[in-house]
């Protein structure tokens, strides 16, 4: 697994890391809860046939500036700048969980600036009868198993790499959780249902079969609301962060959809 190239864009005066790897048509990636503390096998799968461009959202590993953003409008404007500045306007874009929510927002508000969209269990809805799990109220031992079907995958993903700063690394991981909380606390409800009907792009809705965060029923709600053609697909053996649990299957589903 070779390293991606790193470039930096400026968002509200804060640096924001953009990782790029591969060749072929561009595909954007906004990562899920926790961001990208490291490059992942899933992205390598995509990079085999596509130029993968993965910018970080504010407050997620590689970027700061989340605490300048007070309203949901602030966040959407920041996400748009990130997408535009990393050269993803008019391209295929995929995103998972937290990132998936912003991909959906972008596709709704600037419907002619995306080609095709793939969303893995995106956040933004809350149904009282089928509530999403509170990822911020988990006993420390429970959290990995809530996010991934295989808890060890999450633990490895977040483990301090050799040579990293042992103080700053854990702080960055908490910051990513905080950045998500800043947008989505306490219910994860951004009222995205009001905007989903504006999405015109063909949209793939992917769900880990063992997602313990976002109920599967939300996929149906989203498919019903999105104006563009939608396809729902579930990934066996995957939890909420399907791209971490099942990199190959998840990448294959996206690439097939976007071919």
């Amino acid at each position: 697994m070779s390293e991606p190239t790193t470039t930096t864009i400026d968002i509200n005066g804060h640096p924001c890391r953009v990782w790029t790897k591969g060749s072929g048509p561009k595909i954007g990636w906004l990562a899920g809860f926790g961001g990208l503390p490291r490059w992942t096998p899933f992205l390598d799968e995509l990079a085999k046939t596509r130029t993968v461009i993965a910018p970080s959202l504010p407050g997620h590993p590689g970027a700061t500036g989340h605490n300048l953003l007070d309203s949901h409008l602030d966040w959407i404007v920041a996400a748009r700048q990130i997408i535009v500045k990393s050269g993803l306007e008019g391209e295929d874009i995929a995103g998972s969980s937290v990132g998936g929510s912003f991909v959906a927002e972008f596709a709704a508000l600037w419907p002619h600036k995306v080609k095709r969209v793939a969303l893995i269990a995106p956040w933004g809805l809350f149904d009282e009868k089928d509530p999403a799990t509170d990822v911020w109220a988990q006993r420390p031992d429970d959290q990995p198993g809530v996010l991934c079907a295989d808890p060890q995958i999450w633990k490895d993903f977040k483990a301090v790499p050799a040579g990293a700063n042992s103080v700053e690394w854990p702080i960055e991981q908490i910051r990513a959780s905080e950045a998500a909380a800043r947008v989505f606390w306490p219910l994860g409800n951004t009222k995205i249902e009001k905007r989903l009907p504006l999405i015109l792009a063909p949209t793939l809705l992917l769900w880990g079969e063992q997602d313990r965060v976002m109920p599967r029923s939300y996929a149906d709600t989203m498919a019903r609301l999105i104006e563009g053609k939608t396809t729902i697909k579930t990934i066996p053996g995957a939890g909420h962060l399907a791209d971490l649990d099942q990199p190959a299957a998840t990448a294959r589903a996206i690439l097939e959809f976007m071919s």
Binding site: V167, E168, I174, E178
Partner: peptide
């Protein structure tokens, strides 16, 4: 219940840094 102990952002990063 310890699950209510650590909402992210409650402890400032400066305090986390010192706390570590």
């Amino acid at each position: 219940d310890p699950k209510f102990a650590q909402p992210p952002g409650y402890v400032t990063e400066a305090t986390q840094r010192v706390g570590l």
